[in-house]
Design a protein around this nucleic acid. Structure first.
Lengths: 301, 301
DNA sequence: GTCACACGTGAAAGATATTTTCGGTTCGGT
DNA sequence: ACCGAACCGAAAATATCTTTCACGTGTGAC
């Protein structure tokens, strides 16, 4: 049977090269060749069978097995598993060395990796910078609101729609407005106890500030979701939820990272509200799921 | 011969759990048991032979091999190697071990942390599972397309809009359709050389499949962005971009993580296209930025 | 309700990889 | 040169992995 995996990985795997050096003197010439190959290219050797490694080193299977034994493994099979582990560690070790700027000549693999990395970074930043006090206050206001209006244009408009879609699904009355005129005319209808949320990365988007100002003056609880906590929009905001502002590059416009950040904030709002209204939210979510079922074709299996 | 080691470790090993989730629906009961065992205890399974794992899961060797194949390895031997690598990685980088499930009585701090963590996880999984070959082909098709239609309803509709917004900004002709009827009537206009993209997490949304089918039959290049690579929608897709499928909980509907995943894919498409058309894309981006400037109020400081 | 069919499944045969055995070879000492 | 011991690899033996195939089960059509 195979050696217990704890023993394989329990002893520092990085010590393999060291072990080779220590034991080299007590090895025969052929075995040294095998050990050397293993120490130099663990990943490559992990891909080889006994026969393969024997051929590569110009030796025989028997020698390979003998070497594996000398290195402390029950057989070649286990040495190979350890090598695979070592290779994986080496890989992960040099992972974080990404230049995050996306260049024109980057391969698609790089693009995917860098984008994913950047967005992860954005999420971490946002989570770290989010004021849960403000967030809690916003949730409280939403739960109590008669109705909620959400303003956002451009990319932020989609975030606004995302939020309203979700709030509607748990029984709240929410509307998203991308049209500045309609937004203002609707804002006029708001009154104390209602909630208005403005989503703008720059915090300077007039089309969004204007309706928020109106809502503010009508006495509604106003919330600004912005990357600039000192921007004009916050003048009319009772509560400010700060999104993260990450460096933008030529190929990665600000809209991309701000969207990620805004969505996280919006998700937090949603989950916060869902928690507080669990009694009604849970069945509502289940019901909306059910209602959609018939619009899906049966899966292939 | 054994699979090239670069392929085993080239893609982040952490993707295994994600792959299991993605493929689980298309698995048979026995295979699911095996996949589950592997996902839950990679280290333990790495120590087992086919027979051992078959006994542990109460199945047969054949089933174990079949599962390994489904997960993308040539056979059990290679899966085992990958598991050893995974185990080693887990050892070195201590597992975050957060209970990611969001409970009703979690504090807002917990909610923020868990949501951010889950979304980060989703991004990593998506990046790991994305086929850059398919992605590249999709980019090529987009660059050459006379026009591009994007279909998506519900939450995916917002992603569709996000994509078209961005493509428009770099001079491509793209439309998003959330209305199934309009989508179909527009799809009829497509012809060879055009591109149609369907975005659906489940891959079974009839409202989105139908226009894609029409586009497919008209000879357009069709792309499916879905979490289920074996779903009905892929029947009519020349190219499939797989989004990640993460566990959904009561307070965190699937729509939330699929949206994150879909957005990453869409961003990758966008950046890929922007790279290829850099000469025109860069000035176009700058110009659209300029055009919006006058809609922003000057910052307070 | 019953039949036919397709699918999932595991037992066992077949193929491959690993380990062991064993005899030939080399090299140092006498 | 001869002897012996250690080294080495070919090939047999074993373990492991893969494939095949037939059986059971459930499902849809009639």
């Amino acid at each position: 049977m195979t050696q217990d995996v704890k023993e394989i990985f329990g002893s520092p795997v990085g010590s393999l090269a060291a072990k080779v050096r220590t034991l080299a003197p007590s090895m025969t010439r052929s075995m040294q060749r095998v050990a050397e190959a293993v120490a130099n290219d663990p990943a490559g050797c992990a891909a080889l069978t006994v026969t393969g490694l024997a051929e590569l080193t110009g030796t025989s299977e028997a020698t390979v097995v003998r070497t594996a034994r000398l290195l402390g493994y029950p057989g070649y099979r286990d040495l190979r598993l350890a090598l695979a582990g070592l290779a994986a560690q080496q890989q992960s070790g040099r992972a974080p060395a990404i230049t995050t700027d996306i260049a024109v000549d980057d391969s698609l693999d790089d693009v995917v990796a860098k984008l994913a990395y950047e967005e992860q970074q954005t999420l971490a930043d946002t989570a770290a910078g989010l004021d849960t006090g403000q967030l809690g206050a916003a949730v409280t206001a939403l739960v109590a609101a008669r109705r909620t209006d959400v303003y956002g244009v451009g990319a932020s408009g989609l975030v606004a729609q995302d939020l309203t879609q979700k709030l509607l699904r748990i029984g709240l009355i929410a509307h998203a407005h991308s049209d500045p005129h309609l937004a203002v005319t609707n804002a006029v209808q708001l009154r104390s106890g209602d909630v208005a949320i403005a989503i703008t990365h720059s915090g300077t988007t007039g089309d969004v500030i204007e309706p928020l100002r109106v809502a503010f003056e009508r006495g509604a609880t106003t919330v600004a979701v912005t990357g600039r906590p000192d921007a004009p929009v916050t003048q009319y905001a009772d509560l400010v939820l700060t999104t993260s502002t990450s460096r933008e590059t030529e190929l990665r416009p600000a809209a991309m990272s701000s969207r990620t950040s805004q969505l996280l904030v919006v998700d937090c709002l949603f989950v916060g509200v869902a928690q507080r209204t669990y009694e009604t939210a849970a069945p509502a979510l289940a019901a909306s799921y059910e209602a959609l079922a018939h619009r899906h074709r049966s899966a292939s299996r």
